[in-house]
Design a protein around this nucleic acid. Structure first.
Length: 346
DNA sequence: GGTAGACCTGGACGC
DNA sequence: GCGTCCAGGTCTACC
């Protein structure tokens, strides 16, 4: 790429392959995880138009795919333990066009949100103290989108469908409504673009089904400024209030609200769905009706308090990796076929 | 507060 | 290739 390049400071424990490949959204358009180079490609929508960015972490590039250490060789950089609280890791972002100063600021903010670079070391320590199972791997950050709007729409596309349909809907939303970058990639649609789209277009061309009007209504709420993001992310705002508000949004029920809570950095709620029921039965050995299993799941994760979603999620993620191998080696197309209810039941 | 049925799409399966 | 069945969370009407 011949455009702007940015150096982005990351927390000392940051590990791009691990922290990007930590939540299913990294497999959804416009995100593209490149297994060969262990880097993240995606189109960002900035002030002057779309641009494709490639994000790398030099000290993990090319090393991660093997995951084997040759006896007698030196410890690699990313295995060294840096002092706490220092920004020793560096990410590189390369764009396919020149960015203005203002756009560089926007890009930095979007990348920081997406990669959870603001997740404090203290918060992660609290999680690992409460649930030491994930201390060794360092798991704790959950990949998300550059904007709350994209996170909310992606959540709607994950409701009442199997994973391959979610993959397809996001691909089509970008192809049909996303702005084009100089190298031809498509961004995720903006609230304004989605708000101006006809339900019939969404249904026929993006295959979103009955979600059409709900997605347009959501986009209009974002466009009008009815979604108060500072209030939703303010630590002073009680989780219960945020959860109650989210459930008033079109297309958002208890599962979706719980998922958006974690995307907002609030991990005190679970997002329980049929996948959770399967997990309860298959891995935790629970029996009984769905309602009974949901109760058992709630009790199981209760000790993890403010971090219970992460305990739930990384337990589930370990299971997926046991089926499909390390997540940083997953390909979007093949993985879409792995995560079908029928196959997981097997 | 709890429950039943409709909403859409894509995959699996049988013929 | 076609028809049928099923999975998936939210919403509405009804009790």
């Amino acid at each position: 790429m011949t455009g702007s390049r940015l150096t982005i400071p990351a927390p000392a424990d940051y590990d791009l392959p691990r922290d990007v490949c930590s939540y299913g959204y990294f497999l959804l358009a416009p995100n593209h995880w490149d297994v060969e180079t262990q880097s993240l490609f995606r189109v960002l929508d900035l002030e002057d138009g779309a641009t494709t960015v490639r994000i790398t972490q030099p000290d993990t590039m090319q090393q991660r795919p093997e995951r084997k250490r040759v006896p007698g060789t030196r410890t690699t950089n990313h295995q060294k333990k840096p002092p706490r609280g220092t920004h020793l890791k560096t990410l590189r972002a390369a764009f396919d066009r020149k960015l203005s100063r203002a756009e560089q600021q926007q890009a930095r903010a979007q990348i920081a949100r997406m990669l959870r670079l603001d997740e404090s070391a203290e918060n992660l320590r609290d999680f690992h103290k409460l649930d030491p199972r994930f201390k060794k791997s360092g798991r704790g950050r959950l990949f998300r989108s550059p904007s709350l709007f994209e996170d909310v729409v992606k959540t709607v596309t994950s409701c009442n469908v199997t994973w391959p349909s979610t993959v397809h809907m996001n691909t089509r939303l970008c192809e049909v409504l996303g702005r084009k970058s100089p190298t031809g990639g498509r961004a995720f649609p903006t609230p304004d673009r989605l708000a101006r789209t006809r339900p019939g277009t969404l249904r026929a061309r993006c295959r979103v089904g009955y979600r059409d009007q709900r997605m347009i209504d959501l986009a209009r709420l974002f466009r009008k400024g009815d979604i108060d993001e500072p209030w939703l992310t303010d630590p002073e705002t009680p989780d219960d209030d945020v959860f109650a508000f989210l459930k008033t949004l079109p297309g958002i029920g208890p599962y979706a609200a719980g998922n958006i809570m974690q995307l907002l950095g609030r991990y005190s709620r679970l997002a329980l769905d049929t996948e959770s029921i399967r997990h309860g039965r298959a891995l935790l050995g629970y029996t009984g009706s769905e309602r009974q299993i949901l109760k058992q799941l709630a009790a199981h994760y209760e000790p993890f308090g403010a971090h219970k979603f992460r305990s739930y999620w990384f337990e589930l993620w370990d299971f997926y990796e046991s089926k499909a191998g390390p997540s940083h080696l997953w390909q979007r197309e093949s993985t879409a076929k792995v995560f079908t209810a029928a196959l997981l039941k097997k």
